[in-house]
Computed example of a mutant assay.
Amino acid sequence: MKLDLQNIPRRRNLSKEEFQEDYFKPGKPVVIEDLSKDWPALQKWNFNYFREKAGEVIVPLYNGEPAKGRQNSHGPAMKIPFKEYIEILEKGPTDLRMFFFNLLQNCPELLNDFQYPDLGVKFFKKLPVMFIGGEGSKVVMHYDMDLANNFHFNFVGKKRLILYPPDQTGLLYKVPYSIVSMEIINMDDPDLESFPALAKAKGYEAVLEHGDALFIPSKWWHFIKYETASLSLTLRSLPRSPGKIAEVLNNLLFVRNYDNLMRKLQGQKWIDYKNRRAKERTDKNADID
């Protein structure tokens, strides 16, 4: 028994009209292999370049340990200069990751290294963000709280992504009051005897290498495994429909704050309760006794 995954389509020379009709409007993922072919970043962006351009910037790093007890669910493991983090990456496997590094705030000159692609999409240009991870690091299965459409460009290394559409949520062991699956599940090699509903979920996968761009539609679940130390850029397009805007506001103003409040009040008892409910609900959805 294994995960039911199909390969995400890979395209080149994709026109704006084709992207809109085949992928954006129906909400389907696609890997576009040549979307960044004219960007300076395609040739320039490597760890040495960022050591030179942003080495002194203090960056927050996150590890693979789930928050426990009364810990805030969004807290970093440490903060160090970017150049020191690069040294850690170059030494070998590490679970330390850097995410949502805002180029506009931290290193605006790097904005000259890329362009927003002409795909008929309105991008949120205040938030061009970088994601970096060490070899072997993983990002728990989740969807983005702001429900953005993401365009994820990989420049250094190789990473594997598993995606599920929103209609598979009931089979993914979603934790109540959160946007994540149960953190105990290793989607790279899941225990399908303990979490059998995953075998019924229908998903997609892709391996991104240098120059690949992955379109992740709004509210799609994604798990990431850094096969090697990797550096990526994500450009975001925020939702515009009233229903999704209302959901985003609920996520940001209620769900996240309520969850952190309950963590402070009940600690590990709250976390254990949420995981128990996730298991019970999902197995019930999948008709598993």
Rank of each mutant, 00 (worst) to 15 (best):
P117Y: 09
D34A: 04
K16H: 06
E33T: 08
P60K: 15
Q6G: 03
N257V: 08
H210D: 07
Y49V: 02
V140I: 05
E280S: 01
F131A: 02
L127H: 03
R236K: 08
N106D: 13
N106W: 14
F123E: 06
N102E: 15
V207L: 00
W220T: 02
A246D: 12
D95V: 06
V180F: 11
G134Y: 02
K244T: 02
Y62E: 13
L253I: 15
R277C: 12
F153T: 00
V129C: 03
L96T: 13
V156F: 02
L252Y: 13
N149S: 13
N112W: 13
F195L: 01
G203E: 02
I162T: 01
K269A: 15
L235N: 13
S137V: 11
P26W: 14
P128W: 08
I58Y: 07
P128R: 14
S241T: 02
S73F: 08
F153S: 01
F124W: 12
A197E: 02
K126I: 06
V139P: 13
H142M: 04
L119F: 06
N106K: 15
Y164T: 06
T282P: 10
V129A: 07
N102Y: 10
H74K: 05
D95R: 05
R277G: 03
D113H: 09
L5Y: 00
L214F: 10
R240Y: 04
L35R: 12
D212C: 05
L96F: 14
K138V: 14
C107T: 12
M130I: 13
N250R: 14
M182F: 05
L238W: 03
A278Y: 05
